[in-house]
Structures are given as structure tokens and as C-alpha cells.
Design a protein around this nucleic acid. Structure first.
Lengths: 131, 131
DNA sequence: CCCAAAGTACGGTGGGTGTCAAACTTTGAT
DNA sequence: ATCAAAGTTTGACACCCACCGTACTTTGGG
């Protein structure tokens, strides 16, 4: 029942795997607070589109590095992403399957937003004849 | 194509029907901002459970009347509820069908939250033998 | 050994918003 | 005509959180 990892002696003392919450303990409140920020939704969409682990750096965000760190932290606490280190880079992966099992439909709504965004951009272009 | 209602002359000048936004103009950002507040989710759940129009007053909320007014306003702007007057009472109805068509699954997630809440309350009771 | 790269941690700032009380409006009833 | 009920409006306030810069840590490479 030891929730803290046993650390089988061979690995160095400091493990760089941050705690990932059990999805069952996540509340809708937490998830909505995480997803109400457009930058965080952008991260989620990027990870979904990539379909694989991405280091923080390759996701282009309109904020500073320290702010980005903050956003990744919030997403992890809300059970949306999983993080682990590879060298000096922190890799991020969407916890897609398990999250969708806990909150069905939510992720799909976010992905749909990306689609909307594209359609609207096209429509705006079409509706502006000249200027 | 006139988006503003024509007001067929017979009705009195001041109509007490506030503007209800077209669901197609609502963004996910707006909806999430509306639903991130627990009081507003409580309102939505109450309307869903009732299945009929309810005046503001009969929904018990942990806030003052003026704050409640504010929350109903936000929900209406986000396309989640429709309001109309009956006497001195303002009736509120969930725009359930059309909203679900625009954002499939979201409302269901909120309703599921109510279920979760009940289950957790029961579990908490069961896990506390005595004190 | 030292430096660059990639994040993290921390302290501080500004804007947004949930909150309330008080004054006001509209409606229906006495 | 007057009064109570139900909401609304309008400030004002307090707290939260997204944001940034700076300093720091860890890792891998020259």
C-alpha cells in the first residue's frame, strides 16, 4: 500500500518522475479550471494532434518559459497529461484513454474546437471580399 | 437575414425578453468560463433535474440575490439557459437540446457530476465507522 | 571542467471576477 | 393607493491567477 514509489536501489535517490494523480480522485471542478485557460487547451490539442510524447519546448506557446511550466503543472495535476524526463527535456503525453474513460466526451470537445477554429478562419477569409 | 427581431408592432414597446445568443456564435471559451463556476453548474443541474422552467428563487443557492442574478446572466450569455418573465418571476429553462447539438457530451458530463457527488457522499459515510 | 540547453522555483504585479449591500423597478395583491 | 415579492443595477471590495523576470538546478557535450 506504500503510495510512495519503493525506489529499487539501483536508481539514483532523486527520481525525476513527478506524482501523477489517480484519475478517480480528479474532480470536474479541477478539470474545468485546467481547461478554461486557452493556452492549456492549446497544449492539450497539440499533444492530441502529435499522438506521441513531446518535450515542452517544441510546443509553441504565446507565453514565457516559466509560465509554460506553470501550465504543464496544472495539466498534470488535473490528470490530463503524464510527464517524464528524457535527458534534460521533460516529455509530455496526453493521458487520453484513461481520461476519456473518466470524463467521456470532454477531450473530443476540445479537438472539435480546433476544427471549428479552422472553419471559422476560412469563413472569415471568404466573407471579406477586400479592404 | 435580419438578425435583430422585427418586433411586430402589437407587443408593448418594452419587451421583457432579454437577448438570447445564437448557439452558433458561442465559443467553447465562453462555455467553459460559464461552467467553471460551481454555483453556475449547480443551476444547470437543478434545471436539468427539474425538466421544466424554474423561477430564480426556487433554486437554492449559497449566494445573495444579486450574485445569483449575475450567474443567471452569464449562463444566458453562454447560451445555456433561456429566460422569460411570468409575472414578477423570471423563469429559467435549460437550452438542453440545442446546446447538446452544439457541444455534444458537455451537459451529460455535468449531470454525471451530480451522480458522482451522490456516490462519493455515500462512500464517505461508509468509510467513516465512527468518530 | 566548464558551458549551453531545458526547465523549475520564487517573488511580485496587474487584471478579472465572484461577492455583497443598498437603492431601484416592476408586478400583483390587499 | 399602497405594500410586499422578485429580481436588477450599481458601486465597491477582495481574492485569485496568469504572467513575467531572475536566479537556480540538472543534464549532456566539447
Amino acid at each position: 500500500m506504500a503510495r510512495t514509489a519503493p525506489r529499487t536501489g539501483s536508481t539514483p535517490a532523486r527520481d525525476r518522475v513527478p506524482p501523477h494523480p489517480d484519475l478517480r480522485t480528479i474532480t470536474l471542478q479541477q478539470v474545468l479550471e485546467a481547461l478554461v485557460d486557452p493556452v492549456r487547451r492549446q497544449i492539450v490539442r497539440a499533444l492530441h494532434a502529435a499522438g506521441e510524447d513531446l518535450p515542452c519546448g517544441v510546443i509553441e506557446l504565446p507565453v514565457s518559459k516559466s509560465t509554460a511550466t506553470h501550465h504543464f503543472h496544472v495539466l498534470r495535476e488535473a490528470g490530463l497529461i503524464r510527464q517524464h524526463y528524457v535527458g534534460t527535456s521533460r516529455m509530455n503525453a496526453l493521458r487520453g484513454e484513461e481520461f476519456s474513460e473518466r470524463f467521456p466526451g470532454l477531450l473530443e470537445t476540445l479537438v472539435a474546437e480546433a476544427e471549428q477554429r479552422r472553419v471559422r478562419a476560412l469563413a472569415d477569409l471568404a466573407l471579406q471580399p477586400a479592404r
